[in-house]
């Protein structure tokens, strides 16, 4: 959802209420609020086949992006499109460019999406669960591709996923979100080695340790005030009904939990 806000793609009925979104110091908020997508930010999705137009050959779809974003002519756009398709590791790009999305595998469609994203020459690429729908061997290929392209074009990537292992593999820094609130942010290594927020610890434990099968899972409750995680938190106490600010826990690592205030006051 946050990423949709970044793209100015919020569904009708949901508005950007407050705050600001800046790209390289430039204010983007007003444009985004009116649904104009910034050219420098682009996005790839979880279900690439659904994100492509099923009635148009993929080559044309990539070419169209190039014509709109880079102002290329029809024939030039076509050439660059094929070029982009081969750059994202599609064998026989000429042939694939003439295919319709349903003729391609999920991995191939994701490559096409990435090619389209590259056609925008983005400064920021938002990857929303880009490999969740793919097999692990294909996921490995896509990860390699994204890594190579980042090195090549030096664009930033916002990698959205529920898979902690993918984070460990792909990311430099991590922001942990729960119920629309930022729970914790840190460098990847720091987060995994020194998880500070109870929610982050809970997430990491659920991957590694045994859990009691008889505790029922609760959904996020957006109606509660204060910390959204409070009603599931094992360390909850009376201050959690307030909205927790970010506490600095060292090395630019912040965590939104009142427990840190407690610890500090005890320590000092």
């Amino acid at each position: 959802m946050t990423s949709l806000a970044l793209m100015g793609l919020l569904p009708p009925g949901i508005e950007l209420r407050a705050g600001s979104i800046r790209l390289e110091g430039r204010e983007l908020t007003p444009d985004l609020a009116e649904g104009r997508t910034p050219r420098e930010v682009t996005m790839i999705f979880q279900h690439p086949r659904g994100a492509l137009n099923p009635t148009m050959r993929v080559g044309r779809q990539v070419a169209r992006v190039l014509r709109i974003n880079q102002g290329l002519g029809a024939s030039e756009a076509k050439e660059v499109a094929v070029d982009l398709l081969s750059r994202v590791g599609i064998p026989g790009a000429e042939r694939v460019a003439r295919a319709y999305p349903h003729q391609l595998s999920g991995g191939m469609c994701q490559r096409v999406m990435i090619a389209m994203a590259l056609g925008c020459r983005p400064k920021v690429l938002i990857a929303d669960e880009p490999t969740t729908a793919l097999d692990v061997t294909i996921q490995a290929q896509i990860f390699d591709l994204i890594r190579d392209l980042v090195a090549e074009t030096s664009c930033g990537v916002v990698f959205i996923t529920h898979d902690l292992a993918a984070v460990a593999e792909m990311c430099d820094r991590v922001v942990v979100l729960y119920g629309g609130q930022v729970m914790e942010q840190a460098s990847t290594v720091d987060l995994f080695e020194r998880p500070s927020h109870p929610y982050t610890r809970y997430l990491l434990e659920s991957v590694e340790r045994e859990v009691d099968p008889h505790i029922e899972e609760k959904d996020v409750d957006f109606g509660l005030p204060g910390c959204r995680f409070a009603h599931r938190c094992s360390e909850v106490f009376d201050r959690c009904v307030e909205f927790p600010p970010q506490f600095d826990v060292g090395d630019g690592h912040t965590s939104a939990c009142f427990r840190h205030a407690e610890e500090n006051s005890v320590a000092s």
Partner: peptide, 17 residues
């Protein structure tokens, strides 16, 4: 080897098919 690992320090070499 394609399965990502939660171990942040071990960015191993993967066999990518």
């Amino acid at each position: 080897s394609a399965v990502p690992s939660i171990d942040v320090r071990a960015r191993r070499r993967r066999i990518v098919l």
